[in-house]
Amino acid sequence: MTILEVEHLKKIYTTRFGGAQVQALTDVSFSVEQGEYVAIMGESGSGKTTLLNILAALDKPTSGQVRLRGRSILDISEKDISAFRRDNLGFVFQDYNLLDTFSIQDNVLLPLVLAGKSFDEMNRRLQPIAKKLGINKILKKFPYEVSGGEKQRAAVARALITGPQLLLADEPTGSLDSRNADSLLKLFGEINAEGQTILMVTHSVKAASHASRVLFIRDGQVFHQLYRGNLTNEELFQKISDTLTLIATGGEASA
């Protein structure tokens, strides 16, 4: 079943005084199936972040359409957008975006608190997730007291606790050392295996090689895509590397 449909997205930024126009997205179309694990790759300035912001309903496209389970997220009113985001989307950011003012537990619970759930229900949902992500020992600690890997796992817990349709990850391994990055990617693989749909933006080949499909964006367009098929992570890694070399040397490929 198709969970996310993106059609002809276009985004033009106009500088404040109406001078220069910057085209961040030219024409992006793709779709994501239920249970898929998609990585979007591209260099800095390729429009990855703009795309993610639009998918997250944090930004509006100049034209085009985004549908989550057939419902257009662009038509959701300002009033309901936060609730929509909270209930349907989970976010993992490069710099964790944990709040220093909250303990790890409260950071994880934040979306549920915003959703107005009872504390009993919060607790019921928290326990299995905390255990799965291995953060049950640090729940009472504060973000500044734990390591980067633990912070990112807490952020994943926060993203998953609402049971989102789609997990959006923006360079989730970007701030982690290789050991922590590996363990996070392994975790993503496990979550995905349990049926969680994941969309990850990255320029780490290593991170992308864990995905089931890799989209390449260049100059605001989907330039190419790779399916894992039966490839192992290492083989996919190699294929991604080759594609990136191709892009870098200016070759043409079909989307």
Partner: peptide
């Protein structure tokens, strides 16, 4: 802090 909270799903009103 508030920009993070908005990303996590806090509405502007909240």
């Amino acid at each position: 802090r508030f920009s993070i909270m908005q990303k996590v799903g806090m509405s502007r009103q909240e």
